[in-house]
Simulated scan of single mutants.
Amino acid sequence: MDSIDRNIVAQLGLESGLTSEELGARVGLSPSAAHRRVKALEQHGMILGYRARLSRAAR
């Protein structure tokens, strides 16, 4: 895991619903490179999943 991967994880920790385009722009990669990196992080068990946080009104 290099500094770009750590930055990707940090960005997804702040906002897990980022598109590959948005994530790539934030970490300095093309959308396709960001997507490949995220998939590799998922496959290596560094990203375990995503979840939605709902307001009380939505429950």
Rank of each mutant, 00 (worst) to 15 (best):
R36T: 14
R36N: 13
V9E: 09
T19I: 06
K39L: 12
E21F: 14
L12H: 04
G49L: 05
A33K: 01
A57L: 14
L48M: 10
L41F: 08
I47C: 04
R26I: 01
A57P: 11
Q43T: 15
E15Y: 00
M1H: 10
V9N: 00
R6A: 08
E42I: 11
A33E: 13
E22Q: 09
V9K: 06
E21D: 13
Q43S: 08
S32T: 15
S16W: 11
E22S: 14
E22D: 10
Q43M: 12
L29G: 09
A58E: 04
Y50E: 11
S20D: 13
L54S: 04
R53G: 05
D2K: 02
I8W: 04
N7V: 00
L48N: 13
H35S: 15
G49Y: 02
I4G: 00
P31A: 14
R53D: 05
A34Q: 03
A57W: 04
E42V: 15
K39I: 09
V38C: 10
M46S: 08
R37Y: 00
R37M: 00
L14P: 00
I4K: 08
L48A: 13
A25Y: 11
I47T: 09
A52D: 12
S16T: 10
M1P: 04
R56C: 07
D5R: 00
L54A: 13
R51H: 11
E22C: 05
L29M: 14
A52R: 14
L14A: 12
R26T: 01
G45T: 11
A10E: 07
S3Y: 00
A52C: 08
G24P: 11
A33L: 14
E42Q: 07
L18V: 15
A57C: 06
I8H: 02
E15R: 06
G45P: 15
R51C: 03
G45Q: 07
Y50T: 06
P31F: 09
R37W: 03
R53E: 06
D5K: 01
E15D: 14
L41N: 05
R56I: 01
Y50C: 06
M46N: 03
D5Y: 01
L12F: 01
R53L: 13
S32I: 14
A10L: 03
S20L: 11
L29W: 06
E21P: 12
A40Y: 05
V27I: 13
I8R: 04
L29C: 08
R59T: 07
P31M: 10
R37C: 01
A57E: 12
A40F: 03
G13F: 00
I4M: 02
N7A: 09
S16H: 15
